[in-house]
Nucleic acid binder design. Structure first.
Length: 525
RNA sequence: GGCGCCGUAGCCAAGUGGCUAAGGCAGCGGAUUGCAAAUCCGCCAUCGUGGGUUCGACUCCCACCGGCGCCUCCA
């Protein structure tokens, strides 16, 4: 067993991955050596995305970064569901077309991903662009006897699938569903639609069963097969998708192909709005039918806790640094629920300052921006920070071990805080802000290089923050220079009343002054 | 009714059958500073309750209390 694993990982670090299917961790052994095929269920684009839609992408983006960093080639697919009952309903109420609405909401989604630094998605297939693939998939299931047509609909026949329910460990006869509004057309209430006949006025495509559109689960089965193959490595999504979405995808794909769909089924915890019970933007409890009234009730209910809950993500971005949001998402283990709200966000932003401070400290000392440092690859070998950097080297190892163990970003983040402390201690110990010590500087460079490497794995601090710009910015800088000089004279003359007055009044105006050994610095609050 | 998760310091949050129970925020003491800020050093938890297994459990098992998710279209 160990030999096989070694052969499959071919010198790459051993990475343990938890799978919902087996409810345990196992070494990442891929279908194709050195290559990881990863599929994440993306959004149904009918409304602007909220924070909940960002959790999966940030987590899987981080997973991809770590895999690539560790020597794998990764193909990451995130689908866009652009045909669906909810999109149709929303487009009708807005007086627009399904297509136009879907495009608008897709753009919103992509903009939010970009803001959070999620840039590793390789393919974003849309359901409407794969209708032929989907129809072929359904035909295959019908031909094999796993699906049946009924009145223009096509349903998956759960009774034909011996291990249906294995992902969520449930038996068909224990399920409570009434089968919904289409119950009389199904053989079993647990059967689910692969193809839905179009009602008058609805968007539709021609098919062997008449005009209609794909059911909810089929597109992921069809598109993942088309792009990643019948058996790929990682299939991900939010925990709320485990049932029925992934259970049904798995049933469709494995019934048709006779092989595992994905080796690992990874599910991230859901967002919780502060102390409010239940998840954001979900359905009301009690299993009420999803009609307009219930939908309205759900909206009203989420409004009660709306402070940070289901508001559009773009709204959130206006008030918070994307970096703080990303750090917050990665501070918790990905399978745990995340408590979200203004308070946690503010705390995350405060914690972030430890990093930005050490970066500017480095810049002052080395005359080089942290963001200009090159990004390293893990396979380039272990980073030798040297004897003076023994602690840093150990922390780097701890970080990597945490990430190798089912992508434990919570521990990884913790080691980074330790890392920052080690860097500050090194700077203090060698008084690097005022003294020149080539050896100590060299160590500092190596430390920051490692910090650059590790923060990059988490997708943090990738870009230079926006600097003060334009003529005003230059003017402010000059004025501040002048004010600081005047204050320095007052301090030299022991006129502390004046010095403190300047500092206090600037503080009220939103400017912070800090007196250090190398002079006074200012920053905006 | 079925499947499953969680309960760790004031708050957030990792983790382990025995080695100092990470880290962040807040707080306290100290170094530093004209005073601050920042930085550094130190302090701050026996792990929901009650049983059991074990040489030994916070970590495994059972019960209970409390919180939560899913059970057909919500990421």
């Amino acid at each position: 067993m160990t030999g096989a694993i070694d052969a499959a990982t071919a010198g790459r670090p051993r990475i343990e991955v938890y799978s919902t299917l087996t409810r345990s961790k196992a070494p990442l052994v891929t279908v194709r050596p050195g290559h990881v095929g990863m599929y994440l269920c993306g959004p149904t684009v009918y409304k602007p995305s909220h924070i909940g839609h960002m959790v999966g992408p940030v987590i899987f983006d981080t997973i991809k970064r770590h895999l690539v960093f560790s020597g794998w080639t990764v193909t990451w697919v995130v689908n866009i569901t652009d045909v669906d009952d909810k999109i149709i309903a929303e487009s009708v109420s807005r007086g627009t077309t399904m297509r136009a609405l879907a495009e608008e909401m897709t753009a919103d989604y992509l903009g939010n991903l970009a803001a959070l630094g999620v840039d590793g998605i390789d393919v974003m297939p849309k359901a409407t662009e794969h209708i032929d693939t989907i129809i072929a998939f359904i035909e295959g299931l019908v031909a094999k006897g796993f699906a049946y047509a009924s009145d223009g609909d096509v349903y998956f026949d759960v009774a034909k699938d011996a291990d249906y329910g294995k992902l969520t460990n449930r038996a068909v006869d224990q399920m409570q569903g009434e089968g919904g509004s289409t119950a009389e057309r199904k053989r079993s209430t647990a059967d689910f639609a692969l193809w839905k006949a179009a009602k008058p006025g609805e968007p539709s495509w021609e098919s062997p069963w008449g005009p209609g559109r794909p059911g909810w689960h089929i597109e992921c089965s069809a598109m993942s097969k088309a792009i990643l193959g019948e058996h790929f490595d990682i299939h991900g999504g939010g925990l709320d998708l485990v049932f029925p979405h992934h259970e049904n995808e798995l049933a469709q794909s494995e019934s048709l192909h006779g092989c595992p769909m994905a080796t690992f089924w990874m599910h991230n915890g859901l967002m919780q709005a502060g102390s409010a019970a239940g998840k954001v933007g979900g359905r009301p409890r009690g299993g009420e039918p999803l009609d307009a009234a219930a939908d309205a009730a759900a909206q009203a209910a989420s409004k009660i806790s709306k402070s940070t809950g289901a508001q559009p993500f773009t709204e959130l971005l206006r008030r918070h640094r994307p970096e703080a949001i990303r750090l917050l998402l990665l501070s918790t283990h990905y399978r745990s629920p995340i408590h979200f709200g203004e308070e946690p966000l503010a705390e995350s932003a405060r914690a972030l300052e430890a990093f930005t401070r050490v970066f500017s400290r480095y810049e002052r000392i080395a005359g080089r921006s942290f963001h200009q440092l090159p990004r390293r690859d893990r396979r380039a070998g272990d980073l030798a920070i040297g004897a003076a950097g023994e602690e840093a080297t150990a922390l780097r190892a701890r970080f990597l071990a945490a990430m190798d163990d089912d992508f434990n970003t919570a521990i990884a983040v913790a080691t980074l805080f330790d890392f920052v402390r080690v860097v500050n201690r090194h700077i203090d110990a060698h008084t690097l802000e005022t003294a020149r010590s080539p050896a100590a500087l060299e160590t500092l460079d190596a430390m920051l290089l490692a910090l650059r490497e590790l923060t990059g794995v988490l997708g943090l601090f990738l870009r230079e923050p926006r600097a003060e710009e334009g003529a005003d910015g230059a003017l402010v800088a000059r004025l501040m220079e002048l004010v600081i000089e005047i204050r320095a004279r007052a301090r030299a003359a022991k006129d502390f009343a004046t010095a403190d007055l300047i500092r206090d009044r600037l503080g009220v105006a939103g400017v912070t002054l800090e007196d250090g050994p190398a002079g006074t610095r200012w920053s905006r609050t």
